[in-house]
Nucleic acid binder design. Sequence first.
DNA 1: AGAAATGTTCGGCA
DNA 2: GTGCCGAACATTTC
Length: 264
Amino acid sequence: MPELPDVHAFKEVFDNVALHKRVQDLEINNAKVVQGLNGKKLKSHLQGKTFVGSERRGKYLLVTLDSDEVLAFHFGMTGYLYGRNGEPDRYRRVTFLLDDNRYLEYVSKRMLGRLSLSDSIEHFVEEKGLGPDALYCTEEQFTSRISASSNSIKSALMDQSRIAGLGNIYSDEVLYQAHLHPAVQADSLSDKQRKSLFRVMRRVLDVAIRHHANPTEMPDGYLLRHRKKGEKCPKCGGRIQKDTISGRSSYYCDFCQKKQGGKN
DNA sequence: AGAAATGTTCGGCA
DNA sequence: GTGCCGAACATTTC
């Protein structure tokens, strides 16, 4: 789940439940998700603090405290935020009790997500080596960073130090909508193709955000609704292929996504 | 039972 | 120094 559009949705949960609230108490349900310092220390840093701001950067949600420290949420492959409403989530790892007695749960099923503290957003971004956010970068930033990679376009799109926010699913989606084969070399794209890719990326992210990153609500012409080997391509009726490209499963349509001269 | 899964990090090797 | 690949991480789900 957690790529840029998912994290956008988690930010909305955070803003609704926790922004401008004070942390009354903190329950560490599994200290392994706390990075850099132990659970006790995180607790003492957060107790009594107020969440004064939140912003998304790539796949991270960065929350500013009234102490000016920044709490970074990262969601791994199976994480999300849950404004508790009834039963607690079975896989919650950190639970925030807010001053209005509501609970915000940080959930990470596979334990691959992490919470960490930094002294500023700038330091955090620098430490992680994050590139500009996929939604906020300019066309010039995008094209120059993408064309600087001799790797496949898919791995360039997934490289968080180039552009932050796309993961395996949305990079496949963007390439599908742009009619580009995931294995084409990033530095072999024409100027026209790069510009088109940039526009397609913004449109895909925008549509995903509008549908709360929920695949079942997205248009049928979206690959993520047909992300299965042998499934029918919604655009041409051909079969969806599955290949390993730069270490991850890539789904694409052999017919729509040509290695040479992508249409559009 | 075995494989695959939305992510990041790190060691090793060109 | 750079950049890429595979493995590791931990657990659930198909």
